[in-house]
Nucleic acid binder design. Structure first.
Lengths: 236, 236
DNA sequence: CGGCTACTTGACTGTGGTCAATTGGTGTGG
DNA sequence: CCACACCAATTGACCACAGTCAAGTAGCCG
């Protein structure tokens, strides 16, 4: 897999937290990380496994999920370049030192992997870092609450509508061309992100299309009536 | 409402994070907080309101919840003495400075309230604090993931069984007396904690009772067969 | 003792998950 | 270049969990 040092640097710069560091700090951090690559469909770690460290996505994508006993999948998050994941066990008291979910690549991907000890050591020498991490964690927590709200208080159509309008910039770039969401992941993963199954997602798409709110194509969805979609989502 | 300084100190000592501070640090922090009291049923803040600060429960209890448009309630957490809540907006970048959920007292309660600025200032002078906060946040995040898993991947009976066995110490204190969960909150709140409604909780309790797994009394539940309950929960 | 609230029970319904069959789109090999 | 094969996505038929509405019961406080 081809992967330049430049790609790694750009992923770190994009990162919501590493991006806030000085370039010297970033360089030091990069030295502590190990570049790893994985082909599509590789499981990086599984729910319950002993913790080793966390990842920064440089290239490709990863879905973080949990499985029901019957094998149904709930996707907690799809991680893309510039995002990091699996930091939670870093900061918990040693009592729980396992991955809280499973991570699997959705495409050929590259990462910077930070072993637990190396990163904790970095934080010791850069205490300001902890505050940035706090910001990151807080954001994730709010996100988790929203997802909880969605799954348990809203039906699939509403969740889908919310997901779509969130993918689109608040101010339309061109009032005439309908904004479009490109699907870079299989619909089965999108379904699991919404807490449902492909069959139900399929029906929800058709329902929205019949109300002329969207136009669903194989790998992209045009939002024909953003205002109408937002009305579905209103009332959070 | 009667409330001694001693109660406040003991709540802080119990707290998973403040408990790790030195007594001098704790004293300084206490000076920055304001004692507040509220009668049962008081709304401390509502989802979407501008952020003011966070709370430490000294006495009583509080449920943190979100409402569906139709008014159904999802309880994210019930906070008891020694626990703190609403820290999330403290650490998020200024973009989102609102409470992510609603907080309402379930009984006459007392708090230590920390205004945003006062606490951030404290952290500046006690950088080690940030690490403890990180631990706290990480734990919450894992908890949120578990709740998400439960709500979307397990039925009400399983969720109830899990909730019950988690309330009980791993090692039974007396192998003959069945461990008992005391209900200090209305069943309607417990229902909302499980992501359901009182009617369904009622039926789930009856179902477990008919399988001789529990014995349900008006305000306490005896776990007659912990092993059997755990079997329901197994497969997380 | 009366009235209020919390809880329970019953009957009904709808959303959405499952299973099975079909379609469609893509890549490979003849 | 077409045909087949494979996997993703869709559609249809079915069903069950759980939410709603309504009525009834129990427990508690005034």
């Amino acid at each position: 897999m081809d992967l330049s040092r430049c790609d790694v640097e750009s992923a770190m710069a994009d990162h919501s937290f590493f991006g806030g560091l000085s370039s010297e700090e970033r360089a030091e951090l990069m030295d502590r990380g190990q570049v790893q690559t994985a082909t599509s469909g590789t499981i990086l770690f599984q729910h319950g496994e002993a913790y080793r460290g966390f990842y920064l996505v440089v290239k490709g994508s990863v879905h973080i999920y949990r499985l029901s006993p019957e094998g149904r999948m709930l996707v907690l998050h799809v991680m893309r370049p510039g995002e990091s994941f699996a930091e939670v066990p870093l900061f918990e008291g040693g009592n729980e030192d396992t991955y809280p979910a499973t991570a699997e690549t959705l495409a050929d991907s590259a990462f910077l992997f930070f072993p637990e000890a190396a990163f904790l050591d970095f934080i010791d020498h850069n205490p300001r870092t902890a505050l940035h991490m706090l910001g990151q964690m807080a954001g994730r927590l709010r996100e988790a609450v929203r997802q909880l709200d969605a799954v348990s208080l809203h039906d699939v159509q509403e969740r889908l509508a919310r997901h779509l309008v969130e993918q689109v910039p608040a101010a339309p770039d061109d009032p005439e061309t309908p904004p479009t969401v490109k699907l870079d992941i299989p619909k089965s993963i999108l379904a699991a992100e919404l807490g449902t199954v492909p069959e139900t997602l399929s029906r929800a798409l058709r329902a929205l299309e019949e109300e002329n709110l969207i136009r669903s194509r194989p790998s992209e969805i045009a939002l024909m009536d953003v205002r109408g979609l937002r009305r579905l989502v209103r009332r959070n």
